[in-house]
Design a binder for these strands. Structure first.
Lengths: 359, 359
DNA sequence: ATGAAAGCGCTAACAA
DNA sequence: TTGTTAGCGCTTTCAT
């Protein structure tokens, strides 16, 4: 019988193996492997060759154990969430620039944040970046007593926690300003419920419509972060009378559900209703969705999160604990001026909100 | 000035610190921390308390370095992909059952598979599970020379590689059988292009329509794995004449794009056209999508992947290198019997395909 | 430019 | 039940 390719071969080679193979000390091999000056070009070359030949990879555990610092930043993320996915991508880049490694720990069904964090603690991460964590502030604060903690995309007010987040209220100002500039006056905001950021976006909506003197022709409809939430809210929206001409939605996922229900109900977008999302996720960019949306600056947020972690580790004196990143509006094809066919003669002052639920 | 909560406190406590604090040997502390029998209840309690008090967490790098085995399985996944997300969730569970830890390494923009794998090699993983890898077989084979490699959701034929995948062809048989049972005869398959599994699904479609004697009234339309691909394919579909009454689509994402375009074109689903997806992703389950789809058994795949890695590590004699998991059909609301209103008098033999592009 | 030796925090013999 | 000792693979003084 021919021996098949061995899938469990001999013990992995160590520094000592490489050293022995070349006939030098482990010290020299260590230098060469780390690209540190102090070895003759000849030996450098021979050692490189031997390492390659033996298939040597340094053992990061041993390295980390020996080094005083791990240069490791832990990241807790929701493995299911596309926004977190984007952020993780950005974090890899930012960490590389800052000469740190990332250790990923996922939150998944059956694996909660505490477990994710615990595993990172064992890995000797020097700091933690938590993406939209839902743990109680007390837990986060306790962690912060151990090591620098950077919370991303959730607003937590605690003097030991660093926060990097989008200016959610400003995002809704952008959305409402855009709609008003197009000529809309009857608008609705579909809410994110208890999702992180939802309260601020709701507040931003209220502030913006008030600023435009449109409070009386504004609504907030209960919603949530998912497509399903959006679909349900859209059904409620269809019952509204007079029907608003524009909708701001908590996020893109939710907006997708809204769009789908409107489309199925024969309501054209942006012909009859304009829709604005939030996040500028891949969802929004799809050519057949092409959603006008408030974009979070993921690259900047990732960069700030890593930089803040690094600054804390370096003991750099940083000012604010909370870093608020400005969003910007991406206008695509789900917003347009309202059609000038009011269902009733225009009333200068809107009727009382209660009237809407009648008839 | 009041000293704010320190975010970079004293050196992390070690086993020795705990031991000194209690006044016992490190051995004893080690036993207790690992829940190994061999310590008196009294000491066990005192040590536990001291560890808690000092905020002690074992250093997994030191543990791993010292233990002969790391009991670590590396997972390479695409941080953006919802299907990979689901799998990672399943893998955590399966790994826990098998008493292994998972080390995650993401593929993201700017971080390719080689980098993801390299980092896992340094972490001294004993085996690697690669989710839908796109690296060339040669690279995977080379890896397999070092350690057990389990490839999930991609078909690779190599005697050193283990593969866990869904029976894609069978999935399309299920889909077509379902449609035919409903009474459909003019069908179309929207293809996945070069995506993993696309070729097998296409083949399954061809086999199934042939088996039903429907080859002449079948089409394959070029598509791809994304919503955009589906949207484009759907536009091509709308130009088909006579229009097929049912569509099988490469995957759920693509099917979503198809549904959206159909909806916007005023084509009712399942009234005028039935649609079947593939994956049973969260997308398909959304109440407003409610897509009939071929479900991959994620739980079983995760379990098999971990078990296979474990068996290789244990040297267990396993038979097949390729584990093929049967999918099943989830019937939801996008499939129904065809309406019996042919746009023209039924022709027994379909007109030549070229005719479609005319007029 | 090179090497010897100590030790990172832990576990696994072995002894007591 | 408890302690002593050696050493995992590496980096880091300190010699040479």
């Amino acid at each position: 019988m021919a021996e098949p390719t061995r899938s469990t071969p001999r013990r992995r080679p160590t520094l000592a193996d490489v050293a022995a193979h070349v006939g030098v000390s482990t010290t020299l091999v260590s230098l060469v492997m780390r690209d540190v000056p102090g070895a003759s070009p000849v030996n450098r070359e021979r050692i490189r060759r031997a390492a390659e030949e033996l298939g040597y990879h340094p053992d990061s555990r041993a390295q980390l154990l020996r080094r005083s610092r791990s240069r490791l930043i832990g990241v807790v993320f929701r493995v299911q969430d596309p926004f977190d996915g984007d952020l993780v991508g950005g974090l890899y880049g930012a960490a590389g620039d800052a000469d740190y490694e990332l250790a990923l720990s996922a939150v998944a069904p059956g694996r909660d944040e505490r477990r994710a964090v615990a595993s990172l603690l064992q890995d000797r991460c020097e700091a933690l970046i938590l993406l939209a964590p839902h743990s109680p502030t007390s837990f986060l604060a306790e962690l912060a007593g151990r090591m620098p903690i950077v919370v991303v995309a959730r607003s937590v007010r605690h003097r030991a926690l660093d926060v990097v987040r989008t200016d959610n209220a400003a995002g809704l100002h952008l959305a409402v300003d855009h709609l008003v500039a197009l000529g809309h006056s009857r608008t609705v905001h579909i809410d994110g419920g208890r999702a992180p950021g939802a309260a601020e976006r709701r507040r931003g909506y209220h502030e913006a419509v008030r600023r435009h003197g449109l409070t009386d022709s504004s609504h907030v409809l209960p919603g949530g972060p998912t497509e399903d939430d959006g679909a349900a809210a859209a059904r409620a929206f269809l019952d509204l009378h007079p029907r608003p001409t524009a909708v701001t939605v908590f996020n893109d996922r939710c907006a997708t559900g809204v769009l789908d229900v409107l489309s199925k109900a024969g309501v054209s977008v942006p012909g009859q209703v304009s829709v604005v999302g939030f996040d500028d996720s891949r969802l929004a960019r799809l050519s057949h969705v092409d959603l006008t949306t408030v974009a979070q600056n993921i690259g900047q947020m990732s960069h700030l999160a890593v930089t803040r972690a690094k600054d804390r580790l370096d003991g750099t004196d940083v000012g604010e604990r909370e870093l608020v990143v400005s969003p910007h509006l991406v206008v695509r094809s789900t917003t347009a001026p309202p059609t000038t066919t009011p269902s009733r003669p225009t009333a200068t002052t809107a009727s009382s909100p209660e009237a809407a639920s009648l008839g």
